[in-house]
């Protein structure tokens, strides 16, 4: 149970970063930390103590495998997270070039 709590704590760390940081890049880092905590949670869902990795090889002896589906989901989610992060960072760089700063308090062209 404690590992699930650690995942949740990591998620909260990321959320804290997103909510309190004023720097665009640090916000992106916060989001990444949240993503990673969820990936950990997914791998834990499928984990079975003492089971082998779910890869079929010739002449194998193990009979019990960990659940491969959450691992496949994590791989897909990592690809999506890569796309999101690349997108966020490129927007952050563009913003930097417009405002000459990463501080979100300086960016106020949108109102109400």
């Amino acid at each position: 149970m404690i590992v699930y709590l650690l995942c949740f704590t990591l998620f909260l760390v990321g959320l804290y970063g997103v909510l309190t940081q004023r720097n665009l890049v640090k916000i992106v880092i916060g989001l990444s930390i949240m993503e990673i905590s969820i990936f950990l949670f997914f791998t834990l869902i499928g984990y079975i103590q003492g089971a082998a990795a779910p890869i079929v090889v010739r002449g194998q002896v193990e009979t019990q495998f960990v659940d491969p589906l959450p691992q496949a989901m994590v791989l897909t989610a990592i690809v999506i997270a890569l796309a999101t992060n690349a997108m966020l960072l490129s927007i952050a760089i563009r913003l930097y070039r417009k405002y000459k700063t990463f501080d979100i308090r300086e960016m106020r062209s949108l109102k109400g």
Partner: peptide, 19 residues
């Protein structure tokens, strides 16, 4: 400026929603 700022805000909140 406005488009980038709106997009960043949208991405952070949308990303939070997706997570």
């Amino acid at each position: 400026k406005e488009e980038l700022e709106a997009s960043f805000k949208y991405q952070v909140l949308g990303g939070l929603g997706s997570l």
